[in-house]
């Protein structure tokens, strides 16, 4: 069974009199361990699709099956827990809590998950080391560069042990060097046999697209290409 399967997803936004079809009859399956990019021009529906998969938004029509559960049928509280345990999120920028250090930011989710102190400390240090921040763990976000902040966000997402990491333009605020470096880190982690983490990220950046193993192209809310 596929990790993620979307069937006939439509999303229509109502803006006063105007109806904006952001997604139209989207069908998509993603298998465990994939490293897939969602591309398309601005306004094509990438963010909307990721939000629906992540349970941050609900589709107007259709079904989202993630790890055997129908996301559209979960309550608000169940969705929170689902996101907490099964999903990782990386946003474009300002992912971190400014009053917490890098280490505390990574530990935060694991505190919510109820992991014991020792375990979460070890995991936080482990993943921060994997993303190359062994020496910056005690810094607050304001003391880190944009690229370093995004790497903390990657460490935070992975330390929680999710099945699927959703990243909406994680490199949009980075220069191309930092962008490819971040993608390389994400790719390396996705190859980890133990973690078995699946990545789905959106991007505009052709260099980032090069790193993807699968490219799903959206246009006007429809999938127009899907190539491996």
């Amino acid at each position: 069974m596929a990790l993620l399967s979307l069937s006939n997803i439509s999303k229509i936004y109502q803006q006063g009199e105007l109806t904006v079809p952001a997604l139209q009859e989207v069908n998509l399956t993603v298998e465990q361990g994939e490293f897939a990019a969602l591309v398309g021009p601005s306004g094509s529906g990438k963010t909307t699709l990721l939000n629906i998969i992540g349970g941050l938004d609900t589709p107007s029509e259709g079904e989202v099956m993630l790890n055997g559960r129908d996301m559209t049928r979960l309550s608000e509280s169940e969705l929170s827990d689902f996101r907490l345990f099964e999903l990782g999120f990386i946003f474009q920028a300002y992912n971190l809590v400014p009053v917490l250090s890098a280490l505390e930011n990574v530990e935060l989710i694991m505190v919510l998950q109820g992991r014991p102190e020792k375990e979460r400390r070890e995991r936080a240090e482990h993943f921060l080391t994997l993303v190359g921040l062994a020496d910056q763990m005690d810094r607050r976000p304001s003391g880190l560069s944009g690229g370093q902040q995004q790497r903390v966000a990657v460490a935070r997402a992975l330390a929680a042990g999710p099945r699927l990491v959703l990243a909406d333009e994680p490199t949009a605020n980075l220069d191309s060097e930092n962008a490819t470096a971040l993608l390389d880190i994400m790719y390396t982690l996705s190859q980890d046999k133990e973690l078995q983490t699946t990545f789905l990220f959106s991007t505009h950046d052709p260099r980032v697209m090069e790193r993807a193993r699968r490219i799903i192209t959206l246009r006007d809310g429809r999938i127009v290409a899907d190539e491996c």
Partner: peptide, 16 residues
């Protein structure tokens, strides 16, 4: 609100 939205997205509940 951006930061609060992120906390909410990563699994913190509204009541937290």
């Amino acid at each position: 609100r951006h930061e609060l939205g992120i906390l909410r997205a990563i699994g913190m509940k509204g009541r937290h």
